[in-house]
Amino acid sequence: EVPFKVVAQFPYKSDYEDDLNFEKDQEIIVTSVEDAEWYFGEYQDSNGDVIEGIFPKSFVAVQG
């Protein structure tokens, strides 16, 4: 069931425009499960802007 919160276990950096880049310990709200390997989610950056994109499930852990 979406949405749910995950926390980055590792930093994720990608050159693909659709990917969500983040640092370790970033909290991310997952709004869609793309497939067995990928989530789609969002978070607010330090400027208060909402950043969204896809990212690999293996880089995050589900909270709770």
Rank of each mutant, 00 (worst) to 15 (best):
V30P: 01
V50I: 14
F40K: 12
Q44G: 04
S58Y: 10
I29M: 12
A36C: 14
K13H: 14
S58N: 09
V50C: 14
V2G: 05
Y16K: 15
D25Y: 11
V62M: 13
F4K: 03
A61R: 13
K13E: 08
F10H: 12
D15G: 12
G53I: 04
V62P: 13
S58T: 07
V60G: 02
Q44V: 14
E42R: 13
E52D: 09
A36T: 11
V6Y: 00
F10N: 06
K5N: 07
A61K: 14
E52V: 13
F22L: 01
I29P: 00
F10V: 08
P11N: 07
P11L: 04
Q9P: 02
V60P: 04
D49N: 14
F55W: 02
V7K: 10
I51Q: 14
Q26N: 00
F59W: 06
D49L: 14
S14I: 03
N47M: 08
G41F: 06
K13F: 13
D35V: 06
L20H: 00
Y16R: 15
V7I: 13
I54T: 14
S32L: 07
D25C: 15
D18L: 14
W38H: 14
I29H: 04
Y39E: 00
W38N: 09
V60A: 04
N47Q: 09
D35S: 13
A8E: 03
V6N: 00
E27C: 11
A36V: 09
V62A: 09
G53E: 00
S58A: 11
D25G: 15
S46H: 13
V7L: 06
E37H: 12
E17Y: 10
I28D: 00
K57R: 13
E1D: 13
S14A: 03
E37M: 10
T31Q: 06
D15T: 11
A36I: 10
I54D: 01
F4A: 02
D45G: 08
T31K: 09
D35L: 07
P11C: 11
F55Y: 00
A36R: 09
W38P: 00
V30T: 01
K13N: 12
D35T: 08
Y39D: 02
I54F: 15
E37I: 09
I28H: 00
F10Q: 11
F40N: 03
K24S: 06
V6I: 02
S46M: 11
E23T: 06
V2I: 11
T31F: 04
E17D: 11
S32I: 06
E34R: 15
Y12Q: 02
E17P: 15
P11M: 07
E34H: 15
D45K: 09
Q63H: 10
Q26A: 04
Q63D: 10
K13A: 09
A61Y: 11
K13L: 09
Q26P: 01
K24W: 04
F22P: 02
Y16N: 15
K24F: 05
E1Y: 11
P3E: 04
V33G: 03
F10E: 07
Q26V: 04
E42F: 15
E42I: 09
V6L: 00
D35W: 07
F55C: 03
I54G: 08
G53F: 02
D15S: 11
D19C: 15
Q9R: 14
E42G: 11
F10M: 12
K57W: 03
E23V: 07
T31L: 10
I51H: 15
I51N: 10
F40D: 00
E34S: 11
F4V: 03
V6G: 02
V33S: 06
A36N: 13
E17N: 10
F55V: 01
E27Y: 06
E17W: 09
F4C: 08
G41L: 04
A61F: 09
D25R: 04
P11K: 07
E37Q: 09
A36E: 13
A61P: 04
D25P: 02
F55G: 03
E52S: 15
Y16F: 12
F55I: 01
G53A: 01
Q9C: 15
P56W: 05
F4N: 04
D18T: 14
P56A: 02
E42P: 00
I51D: 01
G41H: 01
F22Q: 01
F59M: 14
D18K: 15
K57C: 09
P11A: 13
G64A: 12
E23P: 06
E1N: 11
Y16G: 14
V2T: 11
V60Y: 02
V7G: 01
N47F: 09
Q63G: 10
V30H: 03
W38K: 07
D19M: 14
D49V: 14
D15W: 09
D45Y: 04
Q63Y: 12
